[in-house]
Measured scan of single mutants.
Amino acid sequence: MDSLVVLVLCLSCLLLLSLWRQSSGRGKLPPGPTPLPVIGNILQIGIKDISKSLTNLSKVYGPVFTLYFGLKPIVVLHGYEAVKEALIDLGEEFSGRGIFPLAERANRGFGIVFSNGKKWKEIRRFSLMTLRNFGMGKRSIEDRVQEEARCLVEELRKTKASPCDPTFILGCAPCNVICSIIFHKRFDYKDQQFLNLMEKLNENIKILSSPWIQICNNFSPIIDYFPGTHNKLLKNVAFMKSYILEKVKEHQESMDMNNPQDFIDCFLMKMEKEKHNQPSEFTIESLENTAVDLFGAGTETTSTTLRYALLLLLKHPEVTAKVQEEIERVIGRNRSPCMQDRSHMPYTDAVVHEVQRYIDLLPTSLPHAVTCDIKFRNYLIPKGTTILISLTSVLHDNKEFPNPEMFDPHHFLDEGGNFKKSKYFMPFSAGKRICVGEALAGMELFLFLTSILQNFNLKSLVDPKNLDTTPVVNGFASVPPFYQLCFIPV
């Protein structure tokens, strides 16, 4: 009986604490739906499609509103004006990374994606500088992407125009580009180590996009005490870190300090320079996690976009025909596509942009946080508050993009057929937390897609009208449904 009384008292205290925290903070924060004790607004949000729920709530509470995930307040920004004001106009104040408990377990605050403060700034600055020195957006990395595009075309030829699921092959190409940047090595598509790495990356994007992960991140005790797919994700990350550590040891034994070959060499050189400046942010643990982040951000996002792009091109054969006509006119058949071609191919450029806009790969991006107490639109948001960005509300804005739910390359073309930029184009987020590999991803999408369409016609196994382009999961990332196609050599 005594234990029951204690339990009831504990629960009562928890409920009172929950109510007090919510009521004391709500006077400062933007308005929002009334949260339930302990669980907050979790029942009012469709976990399978958070973005749709945010759109519905914005119609009631406006472009800036507050939700509670458990006891934790989260300020939501919906629509271009609110997102721009926060991420661009007040970029420094909104540059923090929001709480992501599962990532905390995986990387302990290291790396480039989930770190904060001085650690994040130094690692991000170093990573950007190193990638630029190796030619991100310049010639040397373009050579690597072109080489991988040629290998991709050869792998597709091996399908002999038979029906195939493109998931694996389209994942190999961007993964190999990242391998060449980090390890100075590309792998054969049949290499077992490479296959294991690909498998872990593919599993992780599916797990991260599941409703279960949303629950884990908002009720963090689940991570330590409950079984579930989150444990598989943590094991996959541990596998990748151990693999990278092996490569780091190989580099330490063979590195030429006067001739760095890749990202690992550059990081080890930085560690050597910083060894007298303790404590340094440049450690082996930081290198492991930064490399894992580059793999995660640079492989599955690009391969998922490529997979979605081919599905949309199957669905819209008239678009595919126009792209192939432009390829034939500008590039021809006797040389590989290059980035200089893009400025002469406005329709193809528009298609690449429209694919990214339409699929809305990361509907709410990753959570941000404010780095200080900030007054925002007459609300006071306390330091450390998590900020949720609705990228969907920007990419699918119906004023900027008429009929935003329709796939239409003319969203990025003017009346004369010239490519038209849009400030609403934010597939990689915006501001200080914009994806480090934005330029690389854009290069890969253009070169891989043009190389495929230069060499193959795409054949659907069903009537294009019957192809479903609805994402199968739409949590962290929008993942396309399973499909097969035939690559018919031109």
Rank of each mutant, 00 (worst) to 15 (best):
L19K: 14
G46N: 12
L71V: 14
S478L: 07
G475P: 06
L453W: 00
T159I: 04
T167H: 11
R139H: 11
T470C: 08
N289Y: 13
L314F: 01
A149M: 04
D188Y: 03
R21N: 13
L233I: 12
L201P: 02
P367K: 06
E104R: 10
G40C: 01
N403Y: 08
K375C: 03
S220L: 14
A350S: 05
P404G: 14
N418S: 11
Q278N: 14
E300V: 15
R132S: 06
Y225M: 11
G332V: 05
C175K: 02
Q484G: 03
T290S: 10
L11M: 14
L366K: 04
T304A: 07
K72P: 01
T392H: 14
N258M: 09
V292G: 05
I452P: 00
E203Y: 05
A297P: 03
Q252G: 06
T385H: 04
L9F: 12
G109R: 06
N398T: 13
D408H: 03
R132P: 04
V8T: 10
E250V: 06
T348K: 00
I284T: 07
P346H: 09
S286M: 15
D256G: 08
V145A: 01
Y424C: 11
E155Y: 14
V6N: 13
S336Y: 15
N56Y: 10
D256C: 06
L87V: 15
N403P: 03
E354S: 01
L445P: 01
L233H: 04
T304R: 14
I39E: 03
D408Y: 02
S336N: 12
L458H: 00
L361H: 08
A238T: 10
Y61D: 00
Y379E: 03
E142A: 05
M339Y: 10
N474L: 05
W212H: 06
S140E: 10
L197A: 03
I488K: 08
I39H: 02
L29N: 03
I50F: 13
V177C: 04
Y61P: 01
V8E: 11
E85G: 07
S280Q: 12
S53G: 12
T320H: 12
K273T: 12
K375N: 09
V6Q: 13
R335L: 04
K432Y: 07
C266T: 08
R150H: 10
N56Q: 15
R377D: 08
E300A: 15
N196R: 14
G437H: 03
A161S: 13
L311T: 01
F482S: 15
P480V: 08
E438Q: 15
F94L: 11
I381P: 00
N202M: 11
G117S: 11
F456G: 01
V462L: 07
W120I: 04
P402S: 14
A321R: 15
P73N: 03
D262Y: 02
K48Q: 11
T283S: 09
D188C: 05
P346C: 06
C338F: 06
P73I: 02
G109P: 06
L461K: 08
C164S: 04
L445W: 01
G109I: 05
L461T: 14
L366V: 15
M271Y: 06
V8L: 10
I434E: 15
N398R: 12
L453V: 05
F456N: 02
K84L: 07
K270T: 10
D89H: 09
T469P: 09
N334V: 14
V6K: 15
P404S: 10
L388E: 02
M406T: 14
L9D: 07
N474G: 09
R21S: 13
S393D: 05
F110H: 11
R333V: 07
F194L: 12
P35A: 10
F407S: 00
H368D: 01
K459Q: 14
A149Y: 01
N418T: 08
E81N: 10
M339T: 07
P260V: 05
P464N: 04
K72C: 08
K232L: 06
H410F: 05
H78L: 07
F425H: 10
K138A: 14
L449E: 00
T302F: 02
G442A: 14
M136I: 12
M129F: 11
R157G: 07
D143S: 14
Y483N: 01
Q484D: 04
T34K: 13
F401K: 00
C216N: 09
M426Y: 10
R377L: 04
L485F: 01
Q484C: 04
S127F: 06
T470N: 11
T320N: 08
L287E: 00
I112R: 00
D408S: 07
T304S: 06
L453F: 03
K28N: 13
V370R: 00
S336G: 12
L413G: 01
F219G: 07
K121T: 11
I39C: 06
Q44T: 13
C266I: 07
Q324K: 14
F376S: 04
F446A: 01
V6W: 13
L17I: 13
N334C: 13
N176T: 01
T385V: 04
E199L: 08
K119D: 15
I207M: 11
P367M: 07
I47G: 14
P471Q: 05
G332S: 08
L201F: 06
N133F: 05
F401Q: 03
E288I: 15
L102F: 15
A161D: 04
A161I: 02
P402W: 06
T305W: 05
I374H: 07
Y379N: 04
D397T: 07
L395G: 07
F226K: 04
T301R: 01
K459A: 07
G98S: 15
G79N: 09
G46S: 13
V292Q: 04
P317I: 03
E400H: 11
Q278W: 09
P227E: 07
Y379V: 05
K84P: 03
N204F: 04
F456P: 01
L128H: 12
P471S: 06
A439G: 14
P382R: 08
D293T: 05
R108M: 12
G137Q: 09
L268D: 02
V436C: 07
L268A: 04
R307V: 03
T34S: 12
P409E: 03
I452H: 00
F407P: 00
L413H: 02
F69C: 14
V330F: 08
A350I: 02
F401D: 02
R342P: 03
M339C: 07
P166D: 00
D224Y: 13
G416T: 13
T364S: 11
F110E: 14
G298C: 07
P33T: 02
K52V: 10
Q193C: 10
Q340N: 15
H410D: 12
E253I: 15
K322M: 09
F456S: 00
E400T: 09
I327H: 02
D463F: 02
I244Y: 04
S429D: 05
